[in-house]
Design a binder for these strands. Structure first.
Length: 521
RNA sequence: GCCAGAGUAGCUCAGUGGUAGAGCAGAGGACUCAUAAGCCUUUGGUCGCAGGUUCAAAUCCCGCCUCUGGCACCA
């Protein structure tokens, strides 16, 4: 089976309810995934949950629940969140699932066989209250530890370490010779700067069982469990392995799959937030190399959202609840806003005002009104029947289509929307310049009216195609109103001339009803 | 402190040597197919500060100020 386009989000820590940041990452990943569907590729989109660790265990205890049951409950809520966002994910990984744990243990065994781990005693300052070791950074200026840490004692602890040191140079070479490996460029420079200016220390990969029990046991030493790196990052290959990916299965000596045999690895894109850059561009590549697996092609790093110029925080109530926004404004309005407002890379700022402005100006008055007035005139003047093909806007439309597709392919989703709205704007201008409503009053202009109506209807159809990766519901509604049989999920359909003469279109209905005006009498 | 990046119209940003740009917001206009939408015109900036190079600097160089990100075990 030929390799599929494999794209992932980071897995979320089940430490609470989903927030805007989670929604954003999943939506941009979905837009890229849908783009590749629209390009005609087989696409595998993976998202999921990280369910191990002390905080989960503690939260379960606080809730008076058995830990796994607690995770199950949260997982159900996160999965319904994924549904709410309209994602086309093909699987949902949970790190407490047997299919994942088996692969993690296989990875650990494989690397241990290769001598990639060694045991070492660490001595450091330990806060029993916070159950963590403290570093020099945690000290006050006078060398003491803050009272929030409780009693701090010096403690010795054995752990297994994963060797990183010898991998530094090839990783630098790889990042330098593969400009697309870390996107955008400023993040790439950040990693390179880090790798060139620091000596990699080996990675502490375990926690003693007695300090952390909610985790995956180290297969060759039952006194330890895996700490986050080998547990969480491994999800990107454990799911391919579970679906019979031969590249992963043979590298880990898992034997042939008895069921399906999808070809997924290496990942085409890992979409992540800037906070976990180092894990994905330093530790993860080294882990993969040690396993004998190829590296992902691209790690795409996005920024954080603020609300009204300030950090979102539960304690101050300064948050955006994506579910509430979707319930009020619709899924597509939400998807549109987060992609249009913020390019992938920098931090962004959510304000309710700019959301409302974009909704009114761009979705309702721009796109929605264009579709509505075009279909309305075709209905009024030609009973909704598409006239003969005419190519007045063909060339310009093709230019906007080309721009949009290029932006989509290079992950410039925001720029893609800007290109699409260039076409929206051009079509609205075209209505004004050609004034079909005037032509309709003059019987001698009948042929010209046909031409104009064809161009408008065809542009609306093409917009449906271009918009599908971003706002699939609305794209579908555009096609519905045009009474087209196809689904808008193929970019090939964006070629001019898809509307056939004689085709009967349907009645228009507002795609994005305005919400800021009182209903008209 | 060190290393990057940024500072341009009220807001978000484009512009890397040759007469200051876009979108939004603000103002005005003609129209009426449409979700009172759309279209056209327009106000607005000593391009962070101070020097230098050049016929010419937002753009190159030096200094300074301010902001942001990073400076590893962080779920």
């Amino acid at each position: 089976m030929s390799k599929q386009f494999y794209i992932t989000t980071a897995i979320d820590y089940v430490n609470g309810e989903p927030h805007l940041g989670h929604a954003y990452e999943k939506v941009i990943t979905d837009v890229i995934a849908r783009t590749h569907v629209a390009l005609g590729e087989e696409v595998f989109y993976l998202t999921g949950l990280d369910e191990h660790g002390q905080k989960v265990e503690q939260a379960a205890k606080d809730a008076g629940m058995e830990t796994q049951a607690y995770c199950d409950r949260l997982a159900a809520s996160w999965q319904s969140f994924v549904k709410k966002l309209g994602l086309i994910n093909r699987d949902f990984v949970r790190t407490t699932s047997p299919r994942h744990k088996d692969v993690v243990q296989a990875v650990l065994n494989r690397l241990n066989d290769k001598g990639e781990f060694y045991k070492k005693t660490y001595t450091g300052w330990y806060s029993a209250k916070e159950e963590t070791f403290l570093t020099e950074k945690d000290r006050n200026e006078d060398g003491s530890f803050d009272s929030k840490w409780g009693t701090v004692t010096e403690l010795e602890e054995d752990n297994y370490y994963f060797k990183l040191g010898e991998h530094q140079q090839w990783l630098i070479d790889h990042i330098e010779s593969n400009p697309d490996f870390v996107q955008p460029t400023n993040r790439r420079n950040e990693v390179l700067g880090f790798l060139k200016n620091n000596k990699l220390e080996d990675l502490c990969s375990t926690r003693p069982q007695n300090r952390l029990s909610w985790g995956i046991p180290f297969p060759f030493d039952a006194e330890f469990v895996t700490y986050v790196w080998f547990d969480a990052l491994t999800n990107y290959i454990s799911i391919p392995a579970a679906h019979g990916d031969d590249t992963v299965r043979s590298a880990l000596q898992l034997g042939a799959s008895s069921g399906e045999s999808l070809s997924l690895w290496p990942a085409d894109v890992h979409v992540i937030g800037k906070d976990i850059l180092k894990f994905h561009t330093v530790y993860w590549p080294i882990m993969l190399k040690a396993m004998g697996l190829p590296l992902p092609k691209t790690v795409l790093v996005h920024g954080w959202w603020q609300k009204d110029g300030e950090k979102m925080s539960k304690s101050t109530g300064n948050v955006v609840d994506p579910v509430a926004v979707i319930d009020e404004w619709g899924l597509d309005a939400f998807r549109y806003y987060v992609v249009r407002e913020l390019g992938i890379g920098p931090d962004g700022n959510w304000t309710d005002e700019s959301f409302s402005n974009r909704y009114s100006n761009e979705l309702a008055n721009g796109l929605g009104n264009l579709a509505n007035r075009s279909l309305s005139m075709l209905g009024r003047y030609r009973d909704g029947i598409v006239p003969a093909r005419h190519d007045e806007l063909a060339e310009e439309a093709a230019r906007f289509v080309g721009e949009t597709v290029a932006h989509l392919k290079s992950h410039n989703l925001q720029a893609g929307l800007q290109s699409i709205w260039g076409l929206v704007r051009r079509a609205n201008e075209y209505v004004d310049k050609t004034a079909p409503f005037k032509l309709a009053k003059d019987p001698t202009q009948s042929e010209r009216l046909d031409e104009v109506l064809y161009n408008l209807t065809e542009v609306v159809r093409i917009l449906g195609v271009l918009l599908w990766p971003f706002i699939p519901e609305s794209a579908g509604r555009i096609f519905q109103q045009l009474q087209l049989e196809d689904s808008p999920d193929r970019l090939a359909l964006a070629e001019w001339g898809g509307m056939k003469a004689g085709h009967q279109t349907g009645k228009p209905a507002p795609l994005f009803p305005r919400k800021d005006l009182a209903p008209r009498n």
